[in-house]
Each structure stands twice: as C-alpha cells, then as structure tokens.
Computed example of a mutant assay.
Amino acid sequence: MLKLNIARPAAAYLREKLQLTPEQEEIALYGLQTILYPLTGLLAIVLVGRLLGCLPATLAATFSAGFLRLWSGGAHTRSPLTCTLVGMALFPLLGKIADAAAPGMGASGLLLVLAAVSAVCLPTVVRMAPVDSPAKPILSADYRRNLRRLSVAAVILITAAQVALLKAGAYNLVLALSLGLGWQTFSLTRAGHRFAAFVDKLS
C-alpha cells in the first residue's frame, strides 16, 4: 500500500524539542495530520486545475463536495496520500468536464441537471447521512440527527447558490457544483465504499 506520513517527522521533531511523552506525540501527530493533509490536498487540486485551465470550475466542484462532506461523512481511502492523489485527479477532471459541457447545455439544460441532481442527492442524504467510520464512530443519536439535518441544509444551500449562478450566466460553475455534489453523494453509498476499497487495492 502507498503510504507517506509527512506529519510524523514533524511530530518526532516536536517530541525531541519539547520532550513530549509518547501520548503527547500522538496528539501532536493527529493535530498535524488534521491541518497538513487537507491543505496539501487542496494545493494539489489547485495546481492541477490551474495547469488544465479550469481552476474556477475545479474549485466549485471541490467546494460543493467538501462542504457536504463536512456534515455527511462518506467513503474514504486508508492512505492520506492516496486520498490526495484521487482528489488531485478527480476534481480538476470534473472542472474540465464542466467547462467543456456547460456552454452547449444552455440554461434550460443546466436547470434539468440541477433538478435531477437535487432529486437524487436529497433523498440519498436523508437516508444515508451521516456516514461514520470505524476510526471515528458517531455514538450519539442526537449528534447523528443534527449531522443529517446539516447535510440536508448543505444540499439546499448549494442548490440555491446554483440557481443564483444560473441567473448570472455562470453555467460552468453551476455544472461543476452539481458534479461535486453528485460525487460526494456517491461516496455515501455502498458503491462509493466499494470504489474506495478498489482504489486502496490499486494503491
């Protein structure tokens, strides 16, 4: 399996300099991972999106998927590096598709896409979100209900933003937001989990 823990050397350096206990080192490692991995993943996505000339649409797809994922959870690969590589390939691809396809679809076509994605995403989120993981289980029923409500609210907010962007003529961003929303909804399903497992095997 492909593994690269860029945070561990930094945690070891902090242990040496601050004379941390093993438990404190693990806490420092977790904190560093929480900051570094999302940041490096986003920088990689931005770099590829810029190189492909589709940065605004790439960021729109990344935003819609990431905003929903904050509350809904979803399938993920076991290696942070694999996760970064998947995001670096996927979201610029979605941005490129949005830039290429949106102008030919027109407002009416995009409105149909928006309605179709919302019609699929909302019921799926209501039924499946939040999706926890063995490493971070959701133990409280009240917390689970709150996360589900926030997930539904996220879908509604993104859809409202799409309507506003559609009126403004930003067709590529409307489609990119739909693609990102669809991808994150896919990650909630069994098929999404099977895909993550497949990527882990490949890596």
Rank of each mutant, 00 (worst) to 15 (best):
K96Q: 01
L173F: 14
A196V: 08
A98K: 01
A101K: 00
Y143K: 14
A197Y: 02
A116W: 15
A197Q: 11
H193M: 12
V155Y: 10
V126H: 08
A153K: 00
P92K: 00
L179G: 13
V117C: 07
L188R: 01
G95D: 07
G106I: 08
T159G: 03
L150E: 07
L94Y: 06
V125L: 09
K136R: 13
M105A: 14
A101C: 09
L179Y: 05
F195C: 13
L177K: 04
P134D: 08
P123Q: 13
R149P: 11
C121M: 01
L112D: 04
A197H: 09
A168R: 11
S178A: 15
A119S: 12
A170W: 12
L147H: 09
K96F: 06
R194H: 09
V120Q: 12
V131F: 07
S118A: 14
H193P: 01
A102S: 13
V155K: 00
I156K: 04
A160N: 03
G109I: 02
R190D: 15
G192I: 06
V125D: 05
F91N: 06
L150T: 06
R194L: 12
A168N: 03
T189R: 09
H193W: 05
G182C: 13
L175G: 11
V117H: 05
A98S: 00
R145K: 14
V174F: 08
R149D: 11
G106E: 03
K167G: 01
K167N: 02
L157S: 11
Y171R: 10
A98N: 00
F195M: 13
G104R: 13
F91E: 06
L157M: 10
R127E: 13
A129E: 09
M128W: 02
L177Y: 13
D142L: 10
D142Y: 07
L147D: 03
G106R: 00
I97F: 12
L122H: 10
Y143A: 14
A168F: 04
L177M: 15
S118I: 05
A170V: 04
A100D: 07
Q184Y: 15
A100L: 06
A107E: 15
R194Q: 09
R127Y: 11
A135F: 00
G182M: 15
L177H: 12
R194M: 04
R149S: 14
T189L: 10
R145L: 14
A164H: 01
I156F: 13
A115T: 10
A101G: 01
P123M: 15
L110I: 03
L181H: 04
S133I: 10
I158A: 12
G182H: 08
L179C: 04
A176P: 06
S178N: 14
A116R: 11
A176T: 08
A102E: 14
